[in-house]
């Protein structure tokens, strides 16, 4: 099927099989491999992207469902060579170990801060409950999100 959508601000038009997920489309057809596949059943959050501004598991969305939509992946956060403040906070706080879960974590955190610019630690944990970190670096991830929220409010 023919699919047209906007990915990270750029219009994309491609053929895609109806049974391919948005995750497969992003990685295999568009070549944006920042979005990760792990469980492929909605449990781990590694595949999180923003779909029309909302955090979703791209493994649970068919690519063809996104016709006319806007998708943001980890590759779309940097602006003119400047990392997104969340990306910078993850580096500054040492929140990245192997890095596999981080694109999903950052997009889930992006959505969280967009909905609530001043989350409590409990709210950060809730917001990231659908993102598993196999390296278990949770406390630094929470530090990074708290810090990015603080920086954004200043």
């Amino acid at each position: 099927m023919n699919l047209r959508l906007t990915i990270n601000g750029k219009e994309v038009a491609r053929e895609v099989a109806a049974h391919h997920t948005l995750l497969e489309f992003l990685r295999d057809d568009v070549g944006l491999t920042g979005t990760k596949e792990c469980c492929a059943e909605g449990e781990c959050g590694a595949c999180t992207v923003l779909l029309d501004g909302k955090a979703v598991n791209s493994c649970l969305v068919l690519a063809v469902e996104t016709e006319g939509s806007a998708v943001t992946t980890i590759e779309g956060l940097e602006k003119d060579g400047q990392l997104d403040p969340l990306q910078q906070a993850f580096i500054d706080k040492g929140a990245v170990q192997c890095g596999f879960c981080i694109p999903g974590m950052i997009l889930a955190a992006k959505y969280l801060l967009q909905e609530n610019s001043n989350p409590t630690d409990a709210e950060i944990k809730q917001g990231l409950a659908g993102n598993l970190c196999r390296c278990a670096g949770y406390s630094r991830i929470i530090d990074a999100v708290r810090e990015a929220g603080r920086a954004a409010r200043q």
Binding site: G42, G45, T48, K54, A55, V56, N57, L60, V61, A108, Y111, L112, Q126, G127, A129, G130, N131
Partner: peptide, 9 residues
């Protein structure tokens, strides 16, 4: 129900 990502869909 599920996570934020699940509840959004």
């Amino acid at each position: 129900v599920g996570s934020v990502q699940i509840r959004n869909r």
